[in-house]
């Protein structure tokens, strides 16, 4: 974990130097295209890029879930996540599974970055840390280490953030979000969709 923090700082510094420490902005793509209709006297709008971002995320999640359920590589991943030692004894190449996992995780992170650019049109070299923390906590409040838990936690966190900034002062958004995360972790340490950890079955919690 310490090595990953070090690598994170290296990437951040490289980005700071290449961007001269400034925010980088892009003019919005197709600002007039997308969904637009009137509902109860309020004009609801969703840009083409927002809809593309949501569609891409849904597609990638379904692809991953299908991959995990239907392919041998998905079964290997589940076996290694249950018990790496037993998986190795069963003939699974654990190193290769970990390598594929890292490559896939890099792809997912890259897709998130691409969505950030086309949806919000602004990039800052420091945004990675806050983004990583929020995504990490989203995974933890769902049930860390499970894909469905991560998805549930992320949707819940986004709903909380959007709900707060729609109804209350946006300056307190992060205070409330992290406060709720602490509360959830106090009340349900295994996450919202996780089963409680049993001492005699430490690896069965997920």
């Amino acid at each position: 974990m310490i090595a990953s923090i070090g690598l994170s700082i290296v990437v951040q510094e490289v980005l700071r130097l290449t961007s001269n420490g400034r925010d980088q902005w892009l003019s919005p793509y197709f600002p007039n295209a997308g969904l637009s209709f009137e509902l109860s006297g309020f004009e609801v709008r969703a840009s083409a890029m927002s809809l593309t971002a949501v569609a891409l995320a849904v597609f990638l999640c379904l692809l991953l879930l299908g991959f995990m359920r239907l392919t041998p590589a998905g079964r290997w991943w589940r076996a290694v996540s249950e018990d790496a030692g037993l998986a190795a004894l069963s003939g699974i190449n654990v190193g290769r599974v970990i390598a594929i996992t890292f490559a896939s995780a890099g792809g997912f992170a890259a897709a998130a970055g691409g969505i950030l650019t086309v949806r919000y049109s602004g990039v800052n070299f420091t945004m990675g840390l806050m983004l990583a923390l929020k995504a990490l906590f989203a995974g933890i409040i769902g049930c860390f280490g499970t894909i469905s838990g991560a998805i549930a936690g992320a949707v819940l966190l986004a709903a909380l953030e959007t709900g707060w900034q729609a109804a209350f002062d946006i300056n307190y958004r992060d205070v409330v979000v992290f406060g709720v995360i602490i509360l959830v972790l106090m009340l349900r340490p295994d996450g919202l969709v996780g089963r409680p950890l049993r001492v005699d079955q430490p690896d069965r919690a997920r």
């Binding site: 990953s4 949501v54 997912f108 890259a110 499970t146």
Partner: peptide
């Protein structure tokens, strides 16, 4: 949620097999 979901899944994928948290994924997204 589209952004958070993809990044949270990336964290979950890595943590499930290595039991480690890789903070670099956030900066990889950046």
């Amino acid at each position: 949620a589209a952004v958070y979901v993809l990044l949270a899944v990336a964290f979950a994928l890595v943590h499930a097999v290595t039991r480690r948290i890789v903070f670099t994924l956030g900066d990889l997204a950046t």
